[in-house]
Computed example of a mutant assay.
Amino acid sequence: MSYKAVIFDYIGTLVNCRGYSMTASENKLFSALVAEGFDISKTKFLDAYHIAHLKYRRIRYEEYKEVTNAVWVAEALCSLGYRVTPEDECIKTALNVFFQDFIDTIELREGAKQLLEQTSAQTKVGLISNFTHAPVIHKSLRKVGIHKYFNAIVVSDEVGCRKPCPDIFHTLLGRLEVNAKDAVFVGDSPIEDIKGAKDAGLRTVFVPSQFNSLKDLQDSKQKPDQIATDLTTIAHKLEAVAKMQI
């Protein structure tokens, strides 16, 4: 085996999200904040929240700096006259309510658990996820029963940067104590996963998902080392990667 670790993306690559409604979650966020004692107008709060979301979206997707969802909520509340910080417990409580629907919609993709069982028996396994509220990732990993397969997990919310920034890959590699040339990254995003991992020095396997198709990969002009049709074929693609000359 010519690699010492396999690192996976999470949402899209290992799990699907079925039937999630952002509108319903935003309504629950508002209700949770009211329950925490904020006397706010739903329309004014959601307008302020969306303004903050758009502001930080540019930073997140152009500068690859992660900005936790708590910052958006706190900024929206401050614009309505409240003195709060992202660290306030009331905001964390409301965010847990906001994200519960998302956690409930997460389900394993076919072949995910078998792939992780097989891979973790042979080598180190890591996970990198772009997400603005890290507890969601850790809770959902336990919910679907795959948390135990990972030697190291990095969520963008916890480290301040997000894929495709090479730093987040290097952080995970450091925790695994593996060099980039000795690792393979498996993901479904042509830019965040394939370009990001290759820029960080890893070999790559692309797998299409509900979010990214083979056409999306083709349109992106990115060139992964291997392309899998689904998770059930990943093991064969890892064997092909192992035979590559580094």
Rank of each mutant, 00 (worst) to 15 (best):
P224R: 05
T232P: 11
P208Q: 08
N130I: 06
K198V: 03
A200C: 02
Y3D: 03
A32N: 02
D9C: 10
N69A: 09
C161N: 06
E87I: 03
V15H: 04
L108K: 07
V136C: 01
K44E: 15
K113C: 09
T23W: 08
A235N: 01
A180M: 05
V186N: 11
Q100G: 00
A48N: 12
L33T: 02
L238N: 06
E26G: 00
A112G: 02
Q114F: 05
D193Q: 09
A52P: 08
K28M: 13
K124S: 11
D188R: 13
I91L: 14
L95E: 02
C90V: 12
S120G: 00
A48M: 05
S41W: 13
Q100H: 14
G81A: 02
A48E: 11
E89K: 15
L54P: 01
F185G: 04
H133I: 09
A242D: 14
Q210R: 12
T232I: 08
T93C: 00
T233D: 15
F206M: 07
V154Y: 01
D39A: 13
T233W: 11
Y20S: 13
I106Q: 06
A152M: 01
P86Q: 14
S156R: 13
Q122F: 11
T123G: 14
A152W: 01
D39H: 15
V159R: 12
A24Q: 03
I106G: 00
E87W: 10
Q114C: 11
G196Y: 08
D167S: 01
K143E: 05
E87C: 06
E110M: 10
H138A: 06
K42D: 10
F169M: 08
N69H: 10
V67C: 00
P166K: 08
K163C: 02
N16A: 14
I51F: 08
K4W: 07
E177H: 05
E36R: 14
Y149L: 03
N179V: 10
V73G: 02
F30L: 13
D88S: 10
L95V: 05
L33V: 02
K139I: 12
L202N: 07
L202K: 04
F102N: 03
A5M: 09
E239V: 10
K243H: 00
A134E: 11
A32K: 10
P86Y: 12
F102L: 15
S79D: 09
Q218R: 10
I51C: 02
I59K: 14
D219P: 04
R58P: 01
L80I: 11
V34G: 00
D104L: 07
L29R: 07
F38Y: 15
I128Y: 12
A32C: 01
E62R: 00
I191R: 14
K139Q: 13
F30A: 03
Q122H: 15
D88L: 07
L202V: 07
I153T: 08
V144N: 07
Y3P: 01
N16F: 11
N212E: 09
K139M: 12
I234G: 03
F206Y: 14
F206Q: 04
I246E: 09
A70C: 05
I103K: 15
V159F: 06
Y10E: 02
E117I: 14
